[in-house]
């Protein structure tokens, strides 16, 4: 697979480490009333779709960016690649 890095262009997937479902960006609020239930859901339940999947890839042998890659799990075709940092900000992650 080739991942089209938003900064560096097409790179061999062998340079990356897969880090799981991009839902891992949405870490729950520890002070929420149902924080424990939310963390269990966050930690363990996955959509696991057969089709487009948003997932995290870490460019470990490259620029150390985390990327949010949208990839079809039935064909391995990649339709979108973004910097995870930008995606996290756009989802309103702060402290």
């Amino acid at each position: 697979m080739i991942i089209n890095h938003p900064i560096l262009g097409p790179r061999d997937s062998a340079e990356f480490t897969y880090m799981g479902d991009a839902a891992l960006l949405d870490r729950p609020d520890w002070q929420a009333k149902d924080a424990l239930a939310q963390f269990i859901d966050y930690g363990y339940l996955r959509d696991n779709p057969a089709g487009p999947h948003q997932e995290l890839w870490y460019h470990e042998q490259g620029d150390r960016s985390f990327l949010v890659v949208t990839r079809d799990t039935t064909t391995h075709e990649i339709s979108s690649v973004k910097l995870a940092n930008d995606v996290a900000r756009s989802r309103g992650r702060s402290t």
């Binding site: 960006l25 995290l56 870490y58 150390r64 985390f66 995870a84 940092n85 996290a88 992650r93 702060s94």
Partner: peptide, 15 residues
């Protein structure tokens, strides 16, 4: 290191 980068870039991007 990977874990800390994940925390820095994905969980607390504004730190």
């Amino acid at each position: 290191f990977r874990h800390m980068e994940f925390a820095r870039q994905c969980l607390w991007p504004d730190f």
